Simulated scan of single mutants.
Amino acid sequence: MSKPNYTGIYHMVSQENFEEYLAALDVNYALRKVVCILKPSKHIEHNLNSGEMKIKTVTTFRNFDMDFTLGQEFTEDLGPVDGRKCQTTVNWDGDKLVCEQRGEKEGRGWTHWLEGNLLHLEMRVQDVTAKQVFKKAE
């Protein structure tokens, strides 16, 4: 089975349970309210041959960059302001990208998968799951 190429620009079309997810991450109330009204886009560069990926989440509030190689653990900067970091590994699970994060919160990670022109993102921490759906730009 060939792996899908995630390269593209995707704009958020929906989200579920995101405030609860942020609360489980101990994000303060005011910041949760701000973050939940943002409509991020994801700019993804994916090299299928090398496994290198760049995921840039762009908002009017703040941008987040994540550069990694599939299957290789790296230190992820979770909170540039307060210095939170964790050890992160992203691997294939079939045609889905699955991220496991260690060191910040138990059971934290995410899964990305494509269905047509939709990019799905399921985020989890402990027993809380949130979902966002993005549509690929034409």
Rank of each mutant, 00 (worst) to 15 (best):
M1V: 05
M1N: 05
M1Y: 07
M1T: 11
K3R: 09
N5C: 06
N5Y: 03
T7E: 08
I9W: 03
I9S: 08
V13W: 06
S14G: 10
S14I: 05
Q15H: 13
E16P: 02
E16D: 15
E19D: 14
E20C: 07
L22D: 09
L22A: 05
A24M: 04
A24Q: 03
A24V: 02
L25M: 14
V27T: 10
V27M: 06
N28H: 08
N28R: 05
Y29I: 11
Y29T: 15
R32P: 01
V35P: 01
I37T: 15
I37V: 13
L38H: 05
L38E: 10
L38V: 05
K39G: 14
P40S: 06
P40A: 03
S41A: 09
K42L: 13
H43Q: 14
H43L: 11
I44G: 00
I44M: 00
H46V: 07
N47V: 06
N47I: 01
L48C: 00
N49E: 15
N49P: 02
N49R: 13
G51Y: 02
G51H: 06
G51C: 05
G51L: 03
E52D: 11
I55A: 01
K56F: 10
K56T: 14
T57Q: 02
V58N: 02
T59S: 11
R62T: 14
R62F: 15
R62H: 15
N63C: 12
F64A: 08
F64S: 09
M66Y: 14
D67Q: 14
F68V: 05
T69N: 11
G71Q: 08
G71W: 08
E76L: 04
D77Q: 03
D77S: 09
L78Q: 04
L78W: 07
L78G: 07
P80W: 08
P80T: 11
G83D: 08
R84P: 10
K85D: 07
K85P: 07
C86S: 04
Q87C: 09
T88Q: 04
T89Q: 01
T89I: 13
T89H: 04
N91G: 06
G94K: 01
K96Y: 11
K96H: 12
K96C: 04
L97R: 06
L97I: 09
L97T: 05
V98I: 07
V98C: 02
C99G: 01
E100D: 15
E100P: 03
R102Q: 13
G103F: 00
G103Y: 00
E104S: 14
K105H: 09
E106M: 05
E106R: 06
R108V: 08
R108K: 13
G109T: 04
L114A: 07
E115L: 09
G116W: 10
G116D: 12
N117K: 15
L118V: 15
L119F: 02
H120W: 06
H120M: 06
L121K: 06
E122Q: 12
R124W: 02
R124M: 08
V125T: 04
Q126E: 15
Q126N: 15
D127S: 12
D127Y: 07
V128H: 00
A130F: 00
K131W: 10
Q132A: 11
Q132T: 10
V133P: 03
K136S: 04
A137P: 09
A137N: 14
A137T: 14
A137I: 09
A137D: 15
E138K: 13
